[in-house]
Nucleic acid binder design. Structure first.
Lengths: 237, 237
DNA sequence: CCTCAAACGAGAGCAGTGCTCTTGTTTTTC
DNA sequence: GAAAAACAAGAGCACTGCTCTCGTTTGAGG
């Protein structure tokens, strides 16, 4: 009952995670130190291992949380667009939500989308949260096509199998062409954010926000560039 | 003369760099260990500091070398296209050269385009090599426009200053629209590679090469989508 | 209520890291 | 040939992740 110990455990765990995130945000994931956390907590370093089996496990927890927060942001951004048929508006809102979150939490963004440490295989528990923000994007793509929009992207034959599996896994009925357009848009947007966040626009583009906006607009246009015969939709590129 | 010592120094330096690269390629930059290098070299760890003032300095050297190798690959790929007016072919060749190099040297790619450690400002000596591969891309853009091609990309006003400075710095006369298209193409291509290399397509896209090809083709088309009347060059949208 | 096992925190310790400083030797320079 | 610079070795400092042991605290079952 109540569980004096249970409560203490929950609190300590939360506190460790909180301090870890602060540390990551401040000095980067590479210099996250369990000992430093223990010190700040007034614990001895070995005590931390009662809560996390290893540094990697703590990092995994941080990754999961970050994916969740990002997903939340993107969902909120999408939900914030009143006219649900304003697909370009929704696309812009989501994209900017991702970028804004990245700018606000660069180290967490790097944790998710930066260098993976060789050999580190993302545990199963990360893939759920990891797909959360993408699901919002997928839903948009599907609704766009449902409304008659269609990407004009050409689909390489080699990708048909991937897209077929994709439809099955996410239980959506988007055409290959639309999925193609979505992947391209996704890659392009993430690419722009990466370049900015990882410093490759430094001293080249002073207004990365404008570049991002242009890139997002370009992909948005492409997503609705195909023949858009309103209601009845069929498959096929 | 000849410099017994000078020679030894050059050899030792080269050997350190070589071992460092092997280590980075094998276990990732984060676990690059000066002591391990010293051990393999039969030296004591402090001796390494005669050659590199710090671990960071050694890493910087690796970064510079990697940028140089990447630049070399891209230059060779471009030069390998016989018909110099086959702009789309050249674009494809360069893009694939970058991806192939990344796939062949994932850890080095991560070193260049992955998470930067917070606070680490790239030293001046890196910016030269870092721009080497981009210069090939820029040259292509300029030649394309010279041949009458033009990107249809819209240019946000905020970017005009950046592009003006860009023209000055690289001494090129490309239009804003064309630079815009080039930036978008660059971001898109790098984004696709990042997603693939950093594991975000895992279990989603089994044939990332095909996705990459599609993305590159899309951007290639956009680069020549504007009014393209002048001389003998054809090419459809 | 009382016992016993599980959970816990402290502490010591191991193996590893980057980096500094001193000491004696070797090479280069004047 | 002497002074100066370059060098390798070694000891040492402060830090890391992680393990193991040893008392203490807590909670659950008899």
């Amino acid at each position: 009952m109540a569980g004096i110990r249970e409560r203490a455990r929950a609190e300590h765990t939360a506190e460790i995670v909180r301090l870890a995130r602060v540390q990551v945000e401040r000095e980067g994931a590479s210099s996250l130190s369990l000992r430093a956390i223990a010190r700040e907590l007034g614990m001895v370093s070995s005590a931390i291992y009662r809560y996390f089996a290893s540094r990697d496990e703590l990092l995994t927890k941080l990754i999961i949380d970050s994916y969740d927060r990002l997903g939340e942001e993107v969902e909120a951004a999408d939900a914030g667009v009143r006219r649900r048929t304003d697909f370009l508006g929704r696309w812009r809102a989501m994209s900017h939500a991702i970028r804004q979150w990245a700018l606000a939490h660069p180290a967490e963004y790097a944790l998710l989308f930066g260098t993976p440490v060789p050999g580190y295989a993302a545990p199963q528990d990360t893939i759920g949260p990891a797909s959360r923000y993408t699901i919002v994007l997928i839903r948009l793509i599907v609704e766009m096509e449902g409304a008659g929009h269609r990407s004009a992207d050409k689909v390489p034959v080699a990708l048909r199998r991937d897209y077929a599996r994709f439809r099955q896994r996410f239980d959506v009925a988007a055409s290959d062409a639309m999925l193609m357009g979505g992947m391209a848009a996704w890659a392009n947007m993430m690419g722009a954010i990466n370049l900015e966040l990882f410093g490759h626009l430094y001293n080249v583009i002073d207004t990365p926000g404008a570049l991002f906006e242009a890139v997002v607009a370009q992909q948005g246009r492409l997503l609705v560039s195909g023949t858009a015969p309103p209601p009845g939709t069929s498959k096929r590129a």
